[in-house]
Design a protein around this nucleic acid. Structure first.
Length: 212
DNA sequence: ATCCCGAGGG
DNA sequence: CCCTCTGGAT
């Protein structure tokens, strides 16, 4: 994709989704961190279903710790990878209390030092909670960025850096959601639905046949 | 069967 | 690099 086409690429995606937003439900920075940590390899719908009850009784690190491991697991059992997520979330709560005055830290370094928080989760928190111009690269964004030629890279980090370089900063936050939605519903992993893709004119990928 | 807005450990 | 963790929706 040529740099000159990037503006049109996002303008087209924006037409389909003028105001994309996180589907995760949260009422504080701590809830955001917890929700994103829990969302790995899970749908937002299933995470919301669990956190809706969980945050009612535990919306602070201390209250979360008070639940204990098995108490917390009871709330998130319906989410994938629940055991390691429960363990990591409690360890993170303990670190928030011990090292950050019970608050969610604002730096990438401190965020990534939290158990269960990797680069992707840190980027989401930095962007959504603190307004930093970061780009969280998940499986969808990695695939779409490479396939379309928007921001090619061999690793998620390389794609992240390419996106930061090529996507106008004003688009950055919404671009995250546009790329995810595009990847989930149109530019799918196995069989990209190029025949119904609105941004095909700007895309480097050309399917072998036009049959659908 | 396959996928879902990953992260940690080997 | 690879493997594992995990349940629910489709």
């Amino acid at each position: 994709m040529k740099p000159a086409q990037i503006q049109a690429f996002f303008t087209t995606l924006a037409t389909a989704n003028p105001q994309p937003q996180t589907e995760l439900e949260f009422a504080s920075v701590f809830e955001l961190l917890a929700a994103v940590l829990l969302s790995a390899q899970a749908t937002d719908v299933s995470v919301n279903k669990a956190t809706r009850h969980l945050f009612l009784v535990a919306n602070t690190p201390q209250k979360m710790l008070d639940l204990g491991l098995e108490g917390l697991e009871g709330y998130i059992k319906t989410i994938g990878l629940y055991h390691s997520k429960a363990k990591h979330l409690l360890q993170t709560c303990q670190m928030l209390i011990n090292q950050h005055g019970g608050q969610v830290p604002r730096t990438r370094e401190a965020l990534e030092a939290l158990p269960g928080v990797g680069r992707k989760t840190a980027n989401v928190v930095l962007n959504v909670a603190f307004g930093e111009p970061t780009m969280a690269v998940d499986t969808h964004i990695f695939r779409v960025s490479n396939r379309t030629g928007l921001a090619p890279g061999k690793t998620p980090l390389a794609v992240e850096q390419a996106l930061l370089k090529r996507v106008p900063q004003a688009f950055l936050t919404d671009a995250h959601h546009w790329l995810i939605l595009h990847g989930r519903y149109v530019c799918q992993a196995r069989t990209p639905r190029c025949w119904e893709c609105a941004v095909a004119p700007y895309c480097d990928f050309k399917p072998k046949t036009l049959e659908g």
